[in-house]
Amino acid sequence: MLKRKKPETQLQADVRHILMCTLGAFIIAFNLNTFVNTGGLFPGGFAGVALLIIRGLAKYAGIHLSYSIIYIPINLIPVWIGWKYIGKRFTLFSLYVIVLSSLLTDFMPKITVTYDVFLIALFGGIVNGTVISICLYANACTGGTDFISMYFSAQKGVDAWNYIFAGNVVVLTLAGLMFGWDKPLYSIVYQFCTTQVIHTFFRRYNSQTLMIISEKSEEIYEVIRLLTHHDGTLFKGIGMYQKKERRMILSVVSSDEVSRLLARIQEIDPNAFINIWKTEQLVGNFHRRDID
């Protein structure tokens, strides 16, 4: 029988999430001041929109505004979307990240690590993707288009990150027309690195199909049910080589559950034959964990 560890209380989870969100907010501000502003880049989403407005007003109107004055108000509509469609606790954590990171960006010292714009785009994008992943694991997001992507991922089961990346081209085009094309082109590198890091580290809303051939199918199904709350389908067939009856379990689980599940399956049956492939689209009843 699979033993369950003592579940984390809601208070413990909230404290852990707040600490992660606080760390994320500091990293966001550091990244903006150290890489983005030094390189004159335009990050994706509403952060890029905010910087486009700030730099445009400074260049063409001589008006100098702080980052928080622009970034917090333009996030009000995405925050409303999050509150109504995604989850109240998720939205509150995200709002905390938005406000704290904005204020820290205004008040934290600006540190220059390098003036090489390519290195800035590369490492800045990696840092940005990492901190977005941290916030997502902390049941929060960094604001703006993250809410939109989370909405489509959680409610529709659609991976929207690449579409958000494509939408950022509009902001980069405006930035190129206003400030020249070199920094917007480097910003594409920054945004691409961000997207790839998120795809690598945060896979909750991606799904994979498991095909498991084992003589201990009942025990393996119990593990799948307890660990993932997903069902499985049992198929019976004949092994072509030995002409013996074989049992195969077919189950679809979230990608971030696969590693833990495989470890438990191999404990039960080291000789189990397991085939895993990426699930591009799901139609039908599939258990998705609540964001809150």
Rank of each mutant, 00 (worst) to 15 (best):
I213M: 05
L51C: 06
H229W: 15
V79Y: 02
P109A: 07
L261S: 07
A61I: 01
I164G: 06
G167L: 05
D159H: 06
S207V: 15
S217C: 08
G40N: 12
S217W: 05
V283D: 15
D256P: 00
G157K: 06
I120F: 02
M240N: 11
T279G: 10
K236P: 05
I126F: 10
D14F: 13
L282E: 09
L100R: 15
K183C: 05
L210Q: 03
G180I: 08
L19D: 01
L57I: 03
Y221A: 03
G24E: 10
K84Y: 08
A160P: 11
K3L: 15
W181L: 08
N206Y: 12
I274F: 00
F192K: 09
T228N: 10
I77K: 00
I132W: 12
H287Y: 15
F123W: 13
I164T: 07
R16K: 14
D106T: 04
L19R: 11
T200M: 14
V283N: 15
S187E: 00
L100F: 13
P184N: 04
G125S: 05
D159W: 04
G45C: 15
M108D: 13
N285P: 12
G62D: 14
Y221P: 11
R204E: 06
Y137C: 02
A138S: 03
G237A: 11
P7M: 03
F179S: 12
I238W: 13
M150F: 05
F42L: 11
A140Y: 08
L177C: 05
I249V: 04
W161C: 09
K278H: 11
K3G: 13
D231N: 12
T22W: 03
T105P: 03
K183A: 12
T200E: 07
H230K: 10
G48L: 09
V197H: 04
G167A: 04
F201K: 13
G232A: 11
G39V: 15
G176D: 00
H199Y: 14
S207A: 14
K88N: 01
L210R: 00
I18D: 02
M211R: 01
T145L: 06
I27L: 11
S254T: 08
K84W: 15
T228G: 09
F93I: 00
V113S: 01
I86Y: 04
L282K: 02
T38Q: 07
I265R: 00
